[in-house]
Design a protein around this nucleic acid. Structure first.
Lengths: 244, 244
DNA sequence: TTGCTTATTGGTCGCACACTCAATAGCATC
DNA sequence: GATGCTATTGAGTGTGCGACCAATAAGCAA
């Protein structure tokens, strides 16, 4: 009954099909790496011929860049939602397709309507642990591949700017609310991100267990740069549920 | 006179040939990336058939891992020479072939016989600027590729340990000499390296100019962790010759 | 000089990739 | 129900890769 391949063509709306392709590519990129985003792979994933993918993306590199941009944007929105971005969502229907946020909705401590300090603590708490590993892997992947792929390089630069901007905005909010104290919100944001990058590069390697001081580097950098008392941002493990 | 290909076989000592292959692979890895280390590419570089390369390296992955290890070791020795490693060199002739250190011999400020503080300042001074970019690129490359290549992953872990150990040793020397003050030399070393990694991941992307505070992050981390006064380690650009 | 070991060649195979393009068939519209 | 647009297929091209192996010749030893 199921031995013959399905020959039935499913003809879809170009915009919807394109969105579907991008979403699939983003998922593959996040889970397996950008080099697995190939015409064949994505075509197979969607039960569609490779030629169709190249119909929507004349060059494969475009798809790869789009996949990265999509995945990174989704993760940024999940980890560091823009202030005031509640459940309503801006411009429903108009927004380009994005990979579905994996499970954990930012409802509660990380919600965009909480205070800057709480939001920052929540963000930093999410940047340690296995949950963040896939994102670290994606960034390393993209940063390396940027060496050879101009289009991807540009997308990486744009995402960098987005993450930097989002964090800077959070810091400005905190300064305005009197929770943070810094003369250079952008500089503080960059420093925190540099430390996060440095902490994240080891995901693909087996690294000896790190002391708490190292695991807390992003936290202590933020505390120092934002004029917060030590431990104001919590400990990496204390924000999470207790390990089984 | 030179139209016909050279058919003359040059038969070399296996050890020498192997060393030659590794050195070439390391150079290609450093200059163009680990994915350019292929049987064909290295064979062409040495005017030799690809089959010969696989004769010495049954799996291509082994060669890639070896190339990385070789390049990284050479760079470590150049940037952070082991204390007491002067011109004599340990066990001459026995050491495996390494890519030739590129020009700048560590004679002077960075020499292994200088004091720990001077050596550290020299090292940090070398980690900013275009000179270090190739090394940053290599590390990102290797860290990403480690995701798919177990042999390389292990080599990366070994190199990480080597860099960490070398820096820790330098710090211990400094503590013993009364120049540094820390209760946890290893922790300090790791923190400095994390910051360096974080600063280095952007080499393949166009990034907006960074403020001095960011460029000095490794310096200030070291000063903080080693109980040094601010600016004790100099400024990134002041250690170098003046730009033209 | 002769012989022998083995470093080196030349060729082949299978695989995965991006890219091209004429032919085909869904599906909305009339 | 017929028609036309176009999303989708199928088939084929060329490239580069690692791996494999029998044949060959370089250079050392007898």
């Amino acid at each position: 009954m199921s031995s013959s391949v399905q020959r039935k063509r499913i003809r879809k709306d170009p915009a919807a099909r394109r969105a579907e392709i991008v979403a699939t590519a983003a998922a593959v990129a996040l889970a397996e790496g950008l080099e697995c985003v190939t015409l064949r792979r994505i075509g197979e994933e969607l039960a569609v011929r490779p030629g169709l993918i190249s119909h929507y993306f004349p060059s494969a590199e475009e798809l790869v860049a789009e996949a990265f941009g999509n995945a990174a944007t989704a993760e940024l929105d999940r980890l560091l939602p823009a202030a005031g971005a509640g459940a309503e969502g801006p411009e429903p229907g108009t927004a380009p397709a994005r990979v579905a946020p994996s499970g954990t909705a930012p409802h509660g401590a990380g919600a965009a309507d909480a205070g800057p300090l709480v939001r920052l603590r929540w963000f930093l708490g999410r940047t340690v642990g296995e949950e963040y590993d896939a994102i670290s892997r994606l960034w390393i992947n993209a940063r390396h591949l940027s060496r050879y792929r101009p289009l991807l390089r540009e997308r990486v630069a744009r995402q960098e700017a987005a993450w930097r901007g989002r964090l800077e905005e959070l810091i400005r909010d905190g300064v305005a609310a009197g929770e943070f104290r810094t003369a250079d919100p952008l500089g503080a944001a960059v420093q925190i991100l540099v430390v996060l990058d440095g902490l994240g590069v080891h995901v693909n390697t087996v690294t000896p267990a790190r002391p708490a001081a190292v695991l807390r580097m992003a936290h202590s950098t933020a505390e120092r740069e934002l004029g917060l008392p030590a431990d104001a941002l919590g400990h990496p493990e204390s924000t999470e549920q207790s390990p089984s």
